[in-house]
Design a protein around this nucleic acid. Structure first.
Lengths: 274, 274
DNA sequence: AGGCAGCCACAACATAGGTTAATCGGCCCG
DNA sequence: CGGGCCGATTAACCTATGTTGTGGCTGCCT
């Protein structure tokens, strides 16, 4: 792991982009975010950023590259819980738990920022809007895990696989990692199997079916989606759960609209006692 | 749905108990929480508190009874994502999303409190410690879903079932809903099947196996766990993921310890500019 | 150049779990 | 008292997916 200077500290990082879809960030908020991402490391592929069972220290922010979050059973069976992409946060709350219940492992060379857990308190105290945006993006991540649970519980192998491909296509296109229909999937079939709760052989069969039907093409790590529409329909993909819509900015409203009802009264009453 | 007076407003509610395991609440915080739980409804069994696809309004706090959070595919296949127990929050962030990606349905008569979404902004602005505790408990819930994902992906039917029973035993005992080894499971086999990604017939077979081996007993809705140890071992249950340990109070530390390093300096610099 | 390791591919066979269907008991309701 | 419905239970059968094993390709090390 090599430490690198924070060259893009004040530019727009993936995290900044993500949070911007929830609210319009002020200059101070932007600066504070930049400060959080000041300490940057580069990590090679196949390296654990976090190990199940271990006590975890720093909070990390993914800036570049791919990683997986996974859990293992004592006998070695493994489940990939989610893919970690740029802008995602690693171990935000793990630092507060006594030990991590999952591992995070890099798939590609990765650039991550880290900050000490005490910053979390600071963040909640001094930057409530940022805190809310982070909490909200945590909820979005939970929604993704819940959707994968639906896949494993109720979708067939073909549906699951199609669904995952469309999900990745959507998530990657937000961070500009898709160019017309194809993207790099730095993932072995074993990892796909572990993500979809299938055996490696069966993933192979299933990919073959998808290729034979012309919905996708695979060359090495590059996957091309020829017909998103149909692939989405095979996977019963409904993008509701990704909560991508930027327009509403409801969090903004929650912050600006609440000043003077009933609730705010209660609010100030209590604070004045403090 | 009938509205009821908030008889226990200032007593300790399940939510209060839960958050207390993360930090020591001040009087103002306790009062504010009580205020959030002021508006109380009673809801009969088999009622949707929240419907997938619907625009969601109020945030709800479960005070009494059981519910399930579930997602459905267009063709009717259904997955139960989690069980909602007293102290759990419903739709905290759904109010901020454009529409809900899951449903919540009561299993028993239920008592819920509700508050308008604007309170979320207020909460983050004025009660950062409460906000952090809520975010943290959200993370704990995600951990439960991730563990269930591991079950569906990598555990056999027998293991999954055993695992779920132990999980419920643990979660229920926190809220005093277990008396020596037995508890009420207000759940049909169909719901169990939907929670475990199995067919109803196979759940039946699996429960029979568990009964035959003497690990559990079932009479109506009452389930008795005869040998938790062995049941936990069958299910490869490791309670790490429930993050139940109350001792550490790390959140407390994150709030009290951060005042004067490096980070706090940055903090005040920025704030003075505002 | 040879050999080893990791990954993909595919065939042949095995099985966990799904499906269909029938029975039974409890409960509600007229 | 007699339906009728819902949920549990079980049997018989079926299929989606897992397992085992083989071979081939590529890249890397020596």
């Amino acid at each position: 792991m090599t430490r690198a200077p924070a060259s893009r500290a004040l530019e727009s990082t993936p995290l900044w982009l993500k949070l911007s879809s929830y609210l319009v960030l002020s200059d101070e908020e932007k600066m504070y975010l930049a400060d959080l991402e000041r300490t940057i490391d580069r990590v090679p592929p196949r390296t654990d950023l976090l190990q199940q069972g271990e006590r975890y220290r720093d909070v990390r922010v993914m800036r570049e590259g791919w990683a997986i979050r996974h859990k293992a059973l004592p006998d070695g069976r493994r489940q990939v819980v989610n893919f970690v992409l740029p802008g995602d946060i690693i171990g935000m709350y793990c630092t507060l738990f006594e030990s991590a219940d999952h591992s995070v492992t890099t798939l590609t060379p990765v650039e991550v920022a880290s900050f000490p857990p005490e910053k979390i308190g600071e963040l909640f105290r001094s930057f409530p809007r940022l805190a809310a945006a982070l909490a909200w993006s945590g909820a979005r991540e939970e929604a993704i895990v819940a959707e994968r649970l639906l896949s494993l519980g109720r979708r067939t192998a073909l549906e699951r696989t199609a669904h995952l491909i469309v999900e990745l296509l959507r998530r990657l296109s937000i961070v500009n990692m898709v160019t017309d229909g194809h993207f790099v999937l730095p993932v072995t079939q074993e990892i796909l199997a572990d993500a979809l709760g299938l055996s490696i052989v069966h993933i192979n069969r299933t990919l073959r079916r998808l290729r034979d039907s012309g919905l996708i093409e695979l060359n090495g790590q590059r996957i091309t989606v020829n017909d998103v529409r149909q692939l989405a329909s095979v996977g019963q993909f409904d993008e509701l759960y990704l909560h991508l819509i930027r327009a509403p900015r409801r969090l903004e409203r929650a912050f600006s609209g609440a000043h003077h009802h009933n609730g705010a009264k209660m609010d100030s009453e209590i604070r004045s006692k403090a």
